[in-house]
Simulated assay, not measured.
Amino acid sequence: MTITREDELDGLKDIGRIVARTMQTMAKAIEPGITTAELDAIGAAELEREGAISAPRSTYDFPGHTCISVNEEIAHGIPGPRAIRTGDLVNIDVSASKNGYFADTGATFRAGPVTPSLDKLCRDGKQAMSVGIKAVRADQPLAGIGKAVGAFASKRGYTLIRNLASHGIGRALHEEPGEIPTWPTRAERRRIDRGLVLTVEPFLSKGGLWAVDGDDGWTLYSEPAAPVVQYEHTVVATERGAIVITAA
C-alpha cells in the first residue's frame, strides 16, 4: 500500500496500536508453565476486544490467532500444548486488520533469565531492526535496508536468515512491492516510494542461513540449526524517514 491521505495513515495507526498492545499483553503473561495456546487465547481476546481480525487466520486459515515460536522454532509456530520453560526464547508475531487496514509486529522475548549469549542476541536483534528502519526513506533504494542490516550483522559476527523477508502491507497482510530483502543483495533494484507501507523484520542468527519447513506445514526452523531472533515493525516511508505505526 502507498498512502496518499491523512485518513489512511490514521487507519494504519489504529491497527498498529492494536497489534502492538496485543503483543505486549501476551508478552507480560509469559511465565514458566503457561502454554502457547494459552498465550494465543490472550491475544485473541485482546484483538476481539479491539474489534480487530487476526490476519494469519483470515488470510491463510492459520490454526491460531497469532504465531508463537519457541527456541528452535523460528517463525509461524502454531499455538498449542507446548509449555514455556525458564530460559526459553519466545517469539510472538501479531498481525491483524481493522476497517480494511493491516499491521504486523513481532518480537522475541526471554522467559526469565537466559544465557548471556542469547541475551546479547536478543538485544542485537532489536538493534538490527532499528538499523533497518533507519534506512527507510522515500526515494532511497529498497536494497538499503538489507545493506544496512547486513553490515550490522557482519560486524558483530551474526548471520541472517535469507529466505524470510520483509514485505509490503496495508490493505492486505502481504502485498506490493512483495518481498523486501533484509540481507544484502545486488538483485534488488527498486526504490522506496513516498508513502509506502512495509514491514522491517530481520531474522538475526548465530549461524542460521535458511528457514526450512517442519512437519506441520507451518512452523519454520533454522538451517543450519542455530538460535534465531526476530523483531518487526510496520512503517510508512516519508522524505524524513520512517513513521513506525506499531510502536508500543
Rank of each mutant, 00 (worst) to 15 (best):
A103D: 01
A138Y: 01
D104L: 00
A128E: 03
K120S: 09
V149M: 07
G146P: 07
L121E: 06
D104Q: 00
L121Q: 13
G132H: 11
S117N: 08
T105V: 11
K147R: 11
C122L: 15
S154Y: 02
V131Q: 00
G157S: 09
V149E: 04
K120E: 14
P116G: 02
T159P: 10
D119A: 13
K155V: 04
G132C: 13
R156M: 09
G157E: 14
K134T: 10
P113G: 01
K147F: 08
K126M: 12
R123Y: 02
G157R: 15
M129R: 15
A111C: 06
A111W: 00
G150N: 04
A148N: 07
V149D: 07
Q140W: 00
D124M: 10
G106V: 03
V149K: 01
I145R: 01
Y158G: 13
F102V: 10
K147A: 15
I133N: 12
G132E: 09
A135I: 11
K126A: 10
V114D: 00
V131F: 01
S154D: 08
P113Y: 03
K134I: 01
T105R: 01
G157C: 11
L118S: 11
F109Y: 13
A138R: 04
G157K: 13
A138N: 06
L160R: 13
D139A: 12
D139M: 05
Y158A: 14
V149Q: 10
S130T: 12
T115K: 04
F152I: 05
K134R: 13
A128G: 11
R156F: 10
K147D: 12
F109E: 12
K134W: 08
A153D: 08
V136T: 08
G157I: 07
Q140G: 06
M129W: 04
K120A: 15
S130K: 12
T159G: 15
R123T: 08
G132Y: 05
A135D: 04
A135W: 13
A143Y: 08
A103V: 06
A128T: 06
